[in-house]
Design a protein around this nucleic acid. Structure first.
Length: 267
DNA sequence: AGGTCAACCTGAGCGC
DNA sequence: TGCGCTCAGGTTGACC
């Protein structure tokens, strides 16, 4: 592997390449917005894509079954772009490229046994798609939170893995105003919100994510969830809820865009 | 202690 | 064509 640029959010240590070269990935998994690759030898490669990061898999020669685009046909030399920061060549054979023009992403190596207590992970909230996450969990997590519900759901310590798009969509589906103070969202609304969160995420994953600008799946294909946005990025357009004649409004909360329908998101 | 906001960095898109 | 401005899928740390 090769680290072509080492100053991502957490600068790479001197021995970064040495610790990764020749290692075998034993398990690939996810926690919050972090991608985890457990390696033989008891270490885990932790990856975050930030806002603009991308991982693409290019098959080489007879690479099979990866659903990836071909190394030879992708045009130009793969992994030599201005923002191609880390390049892995695997036995597959395949080339895996981490690209991030904004460098908000990160890669770091953590001892697998102490992952849970690492500062990046120790205070994370529940996984929204886990059984642990339900309305009761959410009620507890929002109790005493004075921040608006929109900001609370983006807080990774409350619930791990929700981004701006999916928070907006889940609130729209639940008819909850993004401006409502988190602790003041009624219990019956949280009973609606918790399953709506799971539903939005499941649908988005199935659609391959949301390609607003440059999001790509690892095989280079676009995500399609943006085609079914009801609120996000629809400022000024009619609300899609049956019987609602409102228009989607854009406001800024905690420095982030919120899209919602002021006519029907009233709880 | 909890909440808010600027900063990190680059590129795209827009109006002029 | 180019300049200047605004905005972007996220997180952190400094400050109130």
């Amino acid at each position: 592997m090769e680290a072509r640029r080492r100053d991502l959010r957490i600068p790479f240590p001197e021995d970064f390449e040495n610790r990764l070269t020749g290692r075998r990935v034993q398990r690939l998994w996810r926690r919050a917005k972090y991608i985890m690759a457990d390696l033989d030898g008891g270490e885990t490669l932790v990856i975050h894509l930030g806002m603009s990061g991308r991982i693409a898999v290019y098959t080489k020669g007879n690479g099979r079954g990866l659903g990836a685009f071909h190394y030879e046909t992708a045009g130009g030399e793969i992994g030599r772009g201005k923002h191609d920061h880390v390049v892995f060549d695997t036995d597959a054979p395949a080339r895996i490229v981490f690209t991030d023009h904004r460098r908000f992403g990160l890669m770091t190596i953590v001892e697998t046994a102490v992952l849970e207590s690492h500062k990046l992970f120790k205070d994370l909230g529940a996984e929204p798609l886990s059984r642990q996450f339900d309305a009761e969990y959410l009620k507890g997590a929002l109790r005493n939170k004075k921040t608006p519900i929109k900001s609370a759901l983006l807080d990774q310590h409350v619930i791990a893995g929700m981004g701006n798009i999916y928070v907006c969509e889940a609130l729209w589906r639940s008819r909850i105003s993004p401006k409502r103070q988190a602790a003041r969202v009624k219990a019956v609304q949280i009973d609606v919100l918790a399953p709506a969160i799971k539903q939005v995420l499941r649908e988005a994953v199935r659609a391959g994510g949301s390609s607003l600008r440059d999001h790509r799946q690892t095989n280079g294909e676009l995500g399609y969830f943006q085609k079914v946005f009801a609120a996000y990025d629809r400022e000024g357009q009619p609300c899609m809820r049956r019987g609602c004649h409102g228009r989607i409004k854009r406001i800024v909360q905690s420095g982030r865009s919120t899209f919602y329908c002021p006519t029907c998101q009233v709880y």
